[in-house]
Write a protein that binds this DNA or RNA. Structure first.
Length: 974
RNA sequence: GCGGGGGUUGCCAAGCCAGGUCAAAGGCGCAGGGCUCAGGACCCUGUCCCGCAGGGGUUCGUGGGUUCAAAUCCCACCCCCCGCACCA
């Protein structure tokens, strides 16, 4: 039946009502507290999928919750078009890339006929923006759509210009050189989406150590410049092509492949002539560190495209070098070179605990390396590098570096040798080869005059830390990552030459990059509402001079300058200007900003940085929540696995509310959650059954409750507890807990209530009234999470208006009923204990007898609870207190034994339970059990008798009554 | 390497910060029963081992420690995941 349920109809009905009632449109209301929620806006180069749904659903739940708690809540949305991914996608479509076509048609479900249209970047952006917006409406997000904008809107660009001029005026913009991944064919930078297989080109730093002979430099590329002291020889590949070239005024011998590489790294390279490596072999060059001569030898393992094709050999510490040297010795043995080769002897310069004088030799043995082409050699090298880096100490033969750790020595060697020109930096693509989509291999290119935002500024960092300290973070343990990021950030390139976006106002060749133009846009939502009215005044404003436009932004966002002047210069009516400024002051700052946890090391932290320096403290962000990702049936979502469900397809297939709950229900905030078909179907069933139950309760309101039974009170007390817990959890956005409490736990309690009341006489039947109360509160608490279902339930119960707009239920201390709670607890425990006995003994019970605890035990028990509530209860003190009581003394050992036992028991009872039992006071167990007799009898399928221990005439053939204790009646099963 | 998150009973996943009804919530799966013509759904019951009286034993990555008491606190170690820059 649930499968046939028409979610679409339900959703449309309520979405239409929300829209007609404009309940999501927020306007400033004087005297009413506001709550401003934002979520990271989407980038429209693909449809949103269920994973995005998690962040936005959470934001929506938060917004709806606050709305119900009486906050004037604003939740807007916009679209981020800045950058290159849209371009990249269009380019691939234009090139008829089969992979992207498959993704579009197969996963995204876009008709083939649409593809032509999508080849145009702005068309694509428009298409996916519409798609995403529709999805957000269909899943029921309570967004104020009047504030929508995109980051390429003209006025937005003016806003970003203002933002950047501000930063520059504050001295936070710097300029310098910067290495980037680059395609020599396209002549432009490459990001991961520009490469084959979408791999990010990783840039690594290596060093050129310059060996010299007669004014000719052999620049050897290495990651370990500190080992220069242990060099025995250089290697050139005898089969590779080398050239002699003039590089920045020096004469270098390098592999042919190196020429272009150096040019991309801003070196002036003039090739003089090709050289045969064989001409260099057996000659010697001077070691720049030790000044001693070392020979150049042939090594086939040398990769001419890696580094410079010139390698320094440190056989004591580099497995490759040692292996190559040994191979060479073998090859040349007996030849007239043998003596010379044999004279090349490895010697150590780093001491490594637990290693011989030749750590490289040890590791080669350890890894069972056969020759210089053995793949194990690579692993051996990595392992030794790592060991020496962490545990190695420089030896006496390294001069002033002696005694230093390898890490320290490297830093100092680089510093000192760079100063005298003997070491230079060389960048490499670490994970090479990386190929551009056009087919060319990517290289490292150094951009000169790159613009940066200087997050390394100390004052700024301090401000950012201050700002962070004032932000409520969810989950709380993400604080470490934030602090780390703030400390670690330094200069960050903030502009590129390609892509959509706003040109840098003072250097229009550069376009402000996408992570930099999206850090203060939340403020723009205020303005966007006015701009969307398309008044001429804004059209005019867009075209005014920077001074005037900056004056405008400075006034509305920072209160700078004078409104009269701004009005005069912009031509914007004073009334409008005041309204914008007023609305900004009303809604700003953002109370909670939502996104995935992947944005902590970038966007979230930038957001903090920029707000801290641009805005006064009272406009700093108040809260940040970083949620985990969504997995699909236990695996990561990925295009190649084709397990991405676009949100709209998901809604159509499963319904909006089941998806909303599906992404929230099975994991806590920061944890990744798993979405699966079985999960979402079970949620569907749950929701449908809720709606059915509500429908059965019907519209009719019954009169007031007749005197409620203990069971009724228990149910209301549980409901009240659910309200309390759900509220607390919601405040911390622990939505999983909320769902668990109001959907599942409450269901268990309801089913206990119904099971227990099934045998009750109908005279005092309050069942319907109690159930109505439960379902009414439940529909309210469900409203933020599953708004469509909640509205339906609310309506079915005969309520007018919208559940989304009523007040969230309040905790009512008056409904707390410890007596009823403890009474039911007693019965439940008793039932389960009896079952345990039945199971253990294998008896088929015909008669079950219960004995309630005698009053003297209750006195001791209650007294122990009291003692434990004020101080740590101690055996001796409590015992003597009990024995002070004449009546107890009369009971003698029996009382003492019980008192001793009870101390231990009470000590192990959790605080909350102790409190509750203390509040409940002494239970009239016998009465409670007598009332539950019929129920117990039915459950146990046996006759049930209840006595108080030692009651006159009690049936107690086995003398069990004496075991009765408070909350633990004695049991006899026959 | 640096930083962050995590390892819980068949699976998923709470609990851990604030130690004590914790053999450990909830869901899934599995088994038995009820309901039903039947299946599904739904509702009970069970699901580490032992137990003819509500009990006992052994468990929360590994090894130590603190405590009357440890999944929870401390120390050391092992394993998995994520981020480390110009990219949204």
């Amino acid at each position: 039946m649930s499968r046939k349920f028409n979610w679409r109809t339900l959703e449309r009905r309520w979405q239409r009502k929300w829209s007609l009632s404009r309940i999501h449109e927020a306007e400033p209301v004087r005297g009413k507290t506001k709550y401003f929620v934002t979520a990271a806006f989407p980038y429209p180069n693909s449809p949103q999928h269920i994973g995005h749904g998690r962040t936005y659903t959470l934001a929506d739940v938060n917004a709806r919750f606050h709305r119900m708690r009486g906050y004037n809540t604003l939740f807007p949305m916009a679209f981020h078009l800045t950058g290159t991914p849209i371009f990249a996608m269009c380019k691939r479509l234009q090139a008829h890339d089969p992979e992207i076509i498959r993704t579009f048609t197969h996963i995204y479900g876009i008709p083939k006929s649409k593809l032509e249209y999508l080849k145009e970047p702005l068309n694509m952006a428009r298409y996916f923006r519409d798609e995403i917006r529709k999805g957000m409406v269909e899943i029921g997000f309570s967004i104020d759509w009047r504030r929508e904008f995109t980051t390429v809107d003209t006025l937005y660009s003016r806003f970003i210009e203002w933002h950047f001029r501000k930063l520059r005026a504050l001295g936070l913009i710097t300029r310098g050189t910067h290495p980037v991944g680059w395609c020599p064919n396209d002549n432009g930078p490459v990001g991961y989406h520009d490469t084959q297989g979408e791999v990010e080109p990783e840039i690594g730093e290596s060093f050129l150590v310059k060996f010299e002979r007669d004014g000719v430099v052999y620049p050897t590329a290495t990651l370990r410049p500190e080992t220069v002291f242990g060099v025995t020889n250089l290697w050139l590949n005898p089969t590779a092509n080398y050239v002699r070239a003039e590089v920045d005024g020096e004469t270098w011998v390098i592999s042919k492949d190196t020429v272009e590489k150096l040019r991309h790294q801003n070196r002036a390279v003039k090739v003089l002539r090709e050289v045969d490596p064989k001409d260099s072999f057996w000659k010697t060059v001077e070691n720049p560190a030790t000044k001693s001569p070392v020979p150049i030898l042939p090594g086939e393992f040398v990769d001419p495209s890696n580094g410079t094709g010139v390698v320094m050999s440190v056989p004591a510490h580099a497995p490759y070098d040692l292996q190559a040297l040994n191979d060479l010795k073998g090859k040349e043995s007996g030849s007239d070179r043998a003596a010379q080769v044999d004279s090349v002897k490895p010697f150590p310069i780093i001491r490594l605990e637990g290693s011989s004088d030749l750590p490289a030799e040890d590791i080669i043995k350890e890894f069972h390396v056969a020759d210089q082409k053995d793949p194990h050699l690579e692993d051996a090298t990595k392992e030794l590098y790592s060991r020496e880096f962490h545990r190695g100490i420089m030896m006496e033969n390294t001069g002033t570096y002696s005694g230093l750790s390898v890490g320290q020595a490297r830093e100092m060697v680089v510093q000192e040798f760079t100063r005298n020109g003997k070491i230079a930096k060389l960048y490499e693509i670490k994970n090479r080869p990386v190929f551009c989509r056009c087919g060319w291999e990517c290289v490292v290119h150094i951009l000169s005059n790159q613009w940066f935002i200087n997050y390394g500024d100390h004052e700024w960092k301090k401000l950012a830390h201050d700002c962070l300290a004032s932000i409520a973070l969810l989950p709380e343990d993400s604080i470490g990552q934030f602090n780390y990021t703030i400390d670690w950030l330094k200069e960050r390139a903030c502009a590129r030459k390609v892509g959509l976006g706003t040109p840098l106002p003072w250097d229009k060749e550069w376009i402000i990059e996408s992570l930099s133009d999206s850090v203060i846009y939340m403020a723009y939502y205020v303005l966007a509402k006015f701009v969307s009215k398309k008044w001429m005044a804004f059209k005019k404003l867009e075209k005014l001079s920077p001074e005037i436009v900056d004056g405008f932004f400075g006034y509305i966002f920072l209160g700078e300058g004078n409104p009269d002047t701004v009005t005069r210069s912009t031509g914007l009516p004073r009334r409008i200007l005041d309204a914008i400024r007023g609305e900004f002051l009303y809604f700003y700052p953002v109370d909670m900003r939502h996104s995935g946890k992947d944005l902590i090391p970038n966007h979230f932290t930038f957001y903090i940085f920029h707000h801290s320096v641009l805005f006064p403290r009272e406009r700093w962000p108040k809260g940040i929540v970083a949620n985990g990702f969504v997995m699909m049936e236990g695996t990561k979502m990925s295009k190649s696995l084709e397990n991405i469900i676009p949100l709209r397809q998901g809604i159509a297939k499963y319904g909006a509310d089941p998806i909303r709950i599906g992404v929230m229900a099975t994991a806590e905030l920061g944890q990744d959650t798993d979405f699966s078909e079985t999960l979402v179907t079970s949620i569907q069933e749950k929701l449908v059954s809720l709606m059915n139950q509500t429908r059965k309760l019907g519209h009719k309101r019954k009169g007031a409750m007749s005197s409620p039974s203990s069971l009724d009170k228990w149910m209301l007390s549980r409901l009240n507890d659910a309200v309390k817990e759900a509220t607390g959890s919601m405040e911390k956005l622990r939505v999983r807990e909320v769902i668990n409490r109001i959907l599942y736990q409450l269901d268990n309690e309801l089913s206990w209530y119904q099971r227990r009341s099934a045998v009750k006489s109908s005279k005092t039947d309050n069942r319907t009234s109690v159930l109505r109360k439960v379902f009414e509160a439940r529909s309210k608490m469900l409203a933020p999470v599953a708004p469509h279902v909640a509205e339906q339930m609310w309506h079915a119960l005969g309520n007018k208006g919208l559940a989304s707009m009523v007040n969230w239920p309040d905790f009512d201390a008056g409904l707390e009923d410890p007596v009823a709670e403890q009474g039911e607890w007693l019965i439940k425990e008793l039932l389960s204990d009896t079952g345990e006995i039945v199971k253990a003994t294998g008896l088929k019970p015909g008669k079950v007898v219960y004995y309630a605890a005698p009053s003297w035990k209750w006195r001791i028990y209650m007294s122990s609870l009291e003692s434990a509530s004020t101080a740590k209860i101690s055996q001796g003190v409590f015992l003597s207190k009990v024995m002070d009581d004449a009546e107890m003394r009369k009971l003698g050992k029996e009382a003492a034994d019980y008192a001793t036992k009870v101390v231990q028991q009470v000590r192990e009872t959790p605080e909350g339970l102790r409190q509750s039992r203390l509040k409940a006071g002494r239970l009239s167990e016998k009465e409670i059990l007598r009332q539950a007799r019929e129920f117990l009898s039915k459950e146990l399928k046996a006759e049930v008798d209840v006595w108080e221990a030692k009651e006159a005439g009690a049936y107690d053939p086995k003398g069990r009554a004496r075991f009765a204790e408070p909350y633990r009646p004695a049991i006899l099963v026959e």
